[in-house]
Every structure is written in C-alpha cells, then in structure tokens.
C-alpha cells in the first residue's frame, strides 16, 4: 500500500508519472497480461485495497475493451493476514469481493499501486489461498520502488522507480482521491 500523505509531502514533491503516463502504463500491462495468459479465458483481476482496487477495475475494463469479452475485477483485503498486526495500530478491514465467488482453476492477477517490501503481497498470497487454488497467480503493480524484504517480484510493472528508504512515493487516482492521476516522490536526502 502507498504511504499516506503527510502535510509536508507537497513541499518538494516531484511528479514521476502523469495522468497520461499512468494510462499508457496500464494499457501496456493489459496487453502484457493477455499475452502471457494467451487470452482472457479464466482471468480475474483482484485489487489490493485501497488503490489497487481502482487500478484493478481500470485494468479489467482495458482488457475487456481489447478482447471484446468481459473480464471481472474484484478486491482482496489482506488486513487480517498482515505480519505487522502487533506493531501497528489496528485498522478497519476493507472489503473482499471475489467475482463469481471462487478462484479455483482461474488465473488471478493481483494488482497493487506500489510494490515495496513485498509483505503486502505475501499477505495477499496467504489470503488468496484461503479462497481456493488458482491455476496461476500474477502480480501487476503501477510502481516498483525496490527494497524487497521477501523473494517476491512483479510480473507486470508500470514503472521501476529506484528510491531510497527515506523517500515517499504517493499515488493519486481519480475515482478514489478526487484528484488527477499522478505518482509523486518526495522527501529523501538533499
């Protein structure tokens, strides 16, 4: 999940992806997903709350448009599967909505906005296993900022963004944030 905005985050923020960059990246990812799965059969796109859900919805719409047949999007909440529950204040659970009710035998594309430590994806894989046995699971992210703490990599990446730990990456999406789409980076050593 992306970092929460801080009051100072706009001071030295620089935009790394604009609205049209994000649109192009998603379109490319849609084609990549179709190429890798050889079509839209048995495909389901699951976003990880919160912004991954909006990205999953857009990705499913793009794939539907390209293939001319409907590909469903849903959401997969990982709150109850996180490994940092003890160290964090509790958060309210978000909605999980699996279209069609199951994932058995399907190709599931997990979608998140920022890939960082990989711990959210680890939690998502555990959560997914409780819903059934997908034929394959792929990972699509808008931004990969590095610093993995687990052996996890994305299959589809909007933009690789080398960052330092002290920098903050924030994703804004129309339809979720009531602002134009953007990815900005702020903070870090000067």
């Amino acid at each position: 999940m992306a970092d929460m905005p801080r009051p100072d985050s706009t001071i030295d923020a620089r935009e790394v992806l604009s609205e049209s960059d994000i649109a192009r990246a998603l379109k490319r990812i849609a084609h990549e997903v179709l190429e890798q799965s050889r079509g839209a059969d048995d495909l389901v796109i699951l976003g990880i709350p919160t912004r991954g859900v909006e990205l999953a919805r857009r990705l499913a719409a793009l794939i539907t448009e390209i293939e001319g047949r409907e590909v469903l999007a849903g959401s997969l909440d990982v709150t109850m599967y996180r490994d940092d529950l003890r160290a964090q204040p509790t958060r309210a659970a978000q909605e999980t909505q699996i279209p069609g009710g199951g994932v058995d035998g399907l190709v599931v594309v997990l979608v998140d906005d920022v890939l960082y430590s990989g711990r959210t994806v680890r939690a998502a894989l555990d959560a997914l296993a409780d819903y059934g046995r997908p034929r394959a699971v792929r990972l699509a992210v808008l931004v990969d900022r590095g610093h993995r703490e687990l052996p996890i990599r994305a299959d589809h990446v909007g933009k690789n963004l080398p960052t330092s730990h002290s920098e903050r990456v924030s994703v804004r999406l129309r339809g979720y944030d009531d602002e134009a789409d953007s990815v900005t980076i702020s903070g870090g050593a000067r």
């Binding site: 003890r86 204040p89 509790t90 958060r91």
Partner: peptide
C-alpha cells in the same frame, strides 16, 4: 477481539 488483541499499539483509524 481483533480490535482489542491484534495490535500492541491500540486502535486507530
């Protein structure tokens, strides 16, 4: 039980 026990930091938003 989740809100009381999951975290050692108490509850927040």
């Amino acid at each position: 039980l989740y809100h009381l026990l999951a975290s050692e930091e108490g509850a927040s938003a």
